[in-house]
């Protein structure tokens, strides 16, 4: 389980996160929603220890990240797969090498098993033929899908997704949403999805956390969203123009 307690972070005097508390239950998909620049990605980076909080802490499976040595932190990070917003594929490697990289680095699989697993992952993201291509030869959406294949390759306990469907066509977005949902239901993977795509949120979320101006003023399930009264949350949801039964101002 991931617990975030009283976490604050500023950059150059600009408070990005302020006293944030959040629990990410195991085996569920938690969607972190909010406007651009609200601090969602900064929150995600704290979860995997890429940023150090000014105050507060992140606890992963009972281990407070701020109390770990660098070596221990790296062990904790191996429980995670992270899909970065831009994919963050290694330019010098082919798509297949990118997917195989964590397998070669952290597992004792044989070369044949590694190749097989990489094929499986590329097929899961519907890019079975992308293996030999370099990231520069792939579209933005394809890069993101290869990055997703890399993130799931070692079957991590937790997967963090930073805007997994942004820049993708609706059909591919649905595929990614299905994959995120399937990983949760079939493998028990815990997912944290940072997004402002409400269509995805409504398809995959078990829990939703709404980030607004560096705080999390609302958390709940999709059903709770229908009954939410927070004006800022409703304004955000309405801006996505989805008819989800939230009370509108004109109603």
């Amino acid at each position: 389980m991931i617990q975030i307690r009283d976490l604050s972070k500023s950059f150059g005097g600009n408070a990005v996160l302020r006293n944030v508390d959040l629990d990410v239950p195991e085996g569920e998909v938690t969607c972190v929603i909010g406007r651009s620049g609200s601090g969602k990605s900064v929150l995600m980076r704290h979860i995997v220890g890429l940023l150090e909080p000014d105050s507060g802490r992140v606890i992963v499976d009972g281990a407070p990240l701020d109390e770990l040595t660098y070596s221990e932190l790296r062990q904790v990070r191996r429980k995670f797969g992270v899909l970065f917003q831009g994919g963050a594929l290694f330019d010098s490697m082919s798509a297949r090498d990118n997917v195989e990289f964590p397998l070669r680095t952290f597992t004792d699989l044989t070369p044949n098993e590694i190749r097989q697993r990489a094929d499986e992952c590329l097929e899961l993201v519907e890019l079975p033929d992308a293996g030999p291509k370099k990231p520069a030869e792939l579209s933005g959406g394809q890069q993101k899908r290869v990055a997703l294949a890399r993130a799931i390759a070692i079957e991590p306990k937790y997967i963090l997704y930073d805007e997994p469907t942004s820049g993708l066509d609706p059909e591919t977005s649905n595929t990614i949403d299905e994959l995120i949902h399937r990983l949760g239901t079939t493998m028990g993977t815990t997912s944290v999805v940072v997004t402002h795509d409400m269509h995805s949120v409504l398809s995959i979320a078990d829990r939703i956390a709404f980030v607004h101006e560096g705080t999390i003023p609302w958390t709940g399930t999709v059903d709770d969203l229908h009954r939410a009264e927070s004006e800022t949350l409703l304004a955000f949801v309405r801006a996505n123009e989805y008819k989800i039964g939230v009370p509108s101002e004109t109603a």
Binding site: L50, R74, R77, F80, V82, F84, G86, A88, T105
Partner: peptide, 12 residues
């Protein structure tokens, strides 16, 4: 391009 972050996030 966040590739160094990706290496760190993997636990390397």
């Amino acid at each position: 391009k966040e590739q160094i972050d990706a290496l760190e996030a993997m636990g390397l």
